[in-house]
Design a protein around this nucleic acid. Structure first.
Lengths: 140, 140
DNA sequence: CGGGATCCAGAACGATACTG
DNA sequence: CAGTATCGTTCTGGATCCCG
């Protein structure tokens, strides 16, 4: 994201996704979760990220109120990034997503169910009368 | 996403994001959280979504092992989508993200911290000696 | 009714060169 | 060291038309 727009969301967690989605944002947030880091540290820690993308993503996270950027008036210039208080409230969400991500593991965790889909669903349509649809819930 | 690639993730929750990110995926998952729905129901429930995008997103979620697609051999054709067991394990993650999303609320929740950034950080660089850097943690 | 195929616009991302 | 500017590429999403 990056503020300026102010979108309308239809779903509660749409906003959350909008803030943390981006090719390198996950990595950046992950690295900053324990301690502040300066620009160069982040760049070296993230393989293949370019200076441009690092700056861009880190600025968007700042604009969204997740991290804080501190400029030290020194020579050579020094800039540090760290989670701010509002951003730290994301920790439970991130931790929670870690759990599922590990199960999924690039599709490995989903293999079983995918196989099941291929074998059963497409070849053997289920009769309506056979279907059980338990009510589910997970919250607002 | 949509399987076929098998990416390498550097961060545990990168995979989770990859699966649920997409312009309409949040909405689709949100609608399916309580009961199965057929294609037309989803399309009518999601304003402005096109047939193409609905099919595409729903198929990717299926390929990622999150939802199941059931085809009923009837006339006219009837197709239903619902969370599968593996996908249901995402519920806590989604619920968790709802919480932060509500606080954020399109930037409103972040307003305070943004104001603080604009006022303090840019104009008054903090002396290194003044900075307190508590160790943080949120999990692997 | 549900969905495939095409073509296209715009956003996201990347390579490179340059600045205080 | 950190960041800006420009340009090119790639990828996502959308319009439109057609099919069983």
């Amino acid at each position: 994201m990056g503020r300026t727009d102010s979108k309308n969301y239809h779903v509660p967690f749409e906003a959350t996704l909008d803030v943390i989605a981006g090719k390198w944002k996950t990595f950046i947030l992950y690295l900053l979760r324990r301690q502040p880091m300066r620009t160069g540290e982040l760049r070296r820690a993230i393989p293949d990220i370019t200076q441009k993308m690092l700056t861009q993503h880190v600025r968007e996270l700042e604009a969204d109120g997740v991290i804080i950027r501190t400029v030290y008036k020194e020579a050579p210039p020094r800039v540090e990034y760290e989670f701010c208080e509002f951003g730290q409230q994301l920790y439970p969400e991130l931790a929670s997503m870690c759990e599922w991500g590990k199960k999924y593991n690039g599709g490995v965790g989903a293999e079983k169910i995918i196989k099941k889909i291929e074998k059963n669903i497409y070849t053997t349509p289920i009769k309506t009368s056979d279907m059980i649809k338990p009510q589910r819930k997970f919250l607002v």
